[in-house]
Structure formats: structure tokens, C-alpha cells
């Protein structure tokens, strides 16, 4: 057979999970912009050459209910379904779903690099206990805690965008749980594409680094105002 017949002819994957707020408040320009930004990111990642592996992408929406709109798959040839905005914001349930996917070695293999989870939201989670929301002490939110403490999900890189004044930035900061990674704030739908360009740049930089498991990000150098970056 020859020794070369034992070579694993598959590049290692860097999985990206997008948790997309598709609640009713995202209806209109915001959901349209989000759909466009996701396609742009997919296109950019597909055009990256000379990297240490391959990207995989999954999109999970939470609007009314949680849906795995795109199961984790190689980005090559991928066509994303359009997200539609409806209902409440079951973000905690979305955390449970993404944690379950990351912990499942049949979905995210042990040959993968640490995953990236990207969260986009314009509002408050409607399945977070009231006392936690009022106190802003999200460390006590069971679903978020589970995501942060899972054997594998705890190692993921987490990035977040809050859109508009109603976004819960305390919660987004708690979600990231890393003082070296900022929460990005956008006053309207216009910032969604910029945010995804930053996500793409950071993810590509990670894949090209000496150790793609180091979950640092590139500085948000796009044209956002300083007040749009929350450390």
C-alpha cells in the first residue's frame, strides 16, 4: 500500500458558530444587513489563501425559537439560508444549543482548533431570569455559566456585537468573559457588516498564527468611533 496511504488528507478545521438574534426587533433593515454580512463573511473566508487549515461555519438563530439554520459545514460551496426576524429572544436556549454542538466530538472533532462563537443581538434575552437581568449579574445565569464552564465550550473564542440602544451590553460583556476582547457596539444596522469584517480579519489572523488556539483578536481598526468599542 505504501506509507502515504495512511496520511490523513484533511485539513484541520476552525469552526465558527454564529448566534444570530432573529427576534421581532431585528425585522427590516437589521436582519437584511445581517444576512448580507453573513454572505460577505462567507465569501471572504472562501477567498483566503495560504492558511493552516479550513473554516467551518454554523448559523444558529434565536427568534421565537432556536433554529440551527446552518449545521456546521465546510464553507466551500456553502449557500446560507436567509434569516427571518420574528418573536422573542431565547438567547439562553441558543447558548445551550451551541454548547451541545461544541461538546459533541462527532460535530466538532478533536482535530479542530478552538471554535469561535459570534453573538449578534439588538435586545435583551427574554429567557434570562428577571432577578439576573435587573441586577446585571450575569455570572449567575445558568445557560451562560454552562457555556463558560463546558469542557470544550469554555475554550471557545467569543465575539459580540450589540446593535442599538436596547442591546444589553452588560450581558454581551459577560458572554465574552475576556477583558482583552471588546464588545462592539453599533448604533444601527450599518455596523453589522463592519463587525463581520472584523470577525473575518480576527479569525483569519488566528488561523495564520503560530498557534491558532490562542484566541486573540486583531484591533478593531475599522471606522468605528471610540465609543463604539466597549472594553
Amino acid at each position: 500500500m505504501g506509507l502515504n496511504s495512511y496520511v490523513a488528507r484533511e485539513l484541520r478545521a476552525l469552526p465558527i458558530f454564529v448566534l444570530a438574534d432573529a427576534s421581532g426587533s431585528m425585522y427590516g433593515e437589521k436582519i437584511n444587513e445581517l444576512n448580507l454580512a453573513l454572505r460577505e463573511m462567507l465569501n471572504s473566508l472562501n477567498n483566503v489563501d495560504d492558511i493552516r487549515g479550513k473554516f467551518k461555519l454554523s448559523v444558529i438563530s434565536f427568534g421565537g425559537s432556536v433554529k440551527i439554520v446552518q449545521p456546521l459545514a465546510d464553507i466551500e460551496g456553502l449557500v446560507l439560508s436567509e434569516l427571518t426576524a420574528i418573536g422573542y429572544t431565547p438567547m439562553g436556549e441558543a447558548f445551550d444549543v451551541v454548547k451541545g454542538l461544541i461538546e459533541d466530538r462527532n460535530i466538532v472533532s478533536s482535530r479542530s482548533y478552538f471554535p469561535t462563537i459570534v453573538l449578534i443581538s439588538d435586545g435583551i434575552p427574554t429567557d434570562c431570569p428577571d432577578f439576573i437581568y435587573k441586577s446585571k449579574n450575569y455570572a449567575g445565569w445558568k445557560q451562560l455559566n454552562n457555556l463558560h464552564s463546558g469542557e470544550r465550550s469554555s475554550k471557545s473564542q467569543r465575539l459580540a456585537l450589540g446593535i442599538g440602544a436596547d442591546a444589553d451590553f452588560s450581558m454581551l460583556k459577560a458572554f465574552i468573559n475576556n477583558t482583552e476582547i471588546p464588545v462592539i457596539k453599533s448604533k444601527d444596522a450599518g455596523g453589522i457588516s463592519k463587525f463581520f469584517r472584523w470577525v473575518t480579519m480576527s479569525t483569519v489572523a488566528r488561523m495564520n498564527s503560530i498557534n491558532p488556539n490562542v484566541t486573540s483578536v486583531v484591533p478593531p481598526i475599522f471606522d468605528v468611533d471610540a465609543e463604539d468599542i466597549i472594553i
Partner: peptide
């Protein structure tokens, strides 16, 4: 069983080169 002592060096070099295409 299938690679002689004389072939070993070449077989390993070839193998490493092939692995390099997928593992960086």
C-alpha cells in the same frame, strides 16, 4: 513487513513530504 532497510529513508522522506500538505 513491507519496507526494506534500504528503502526506509526514502519512504520516510516521502511520507513526511506528503503529511506536510495537510499538517503545518
Amino acid at each position: 513487513n513491507d519496507i526494506s532497510a534500504n528503502e526506509l529513508r526514502h519512504a520516510l522522506e516521502d511520507f513526511l513530504n506528503d503529511v506536510s500538505n495537510y499538517c503545518f
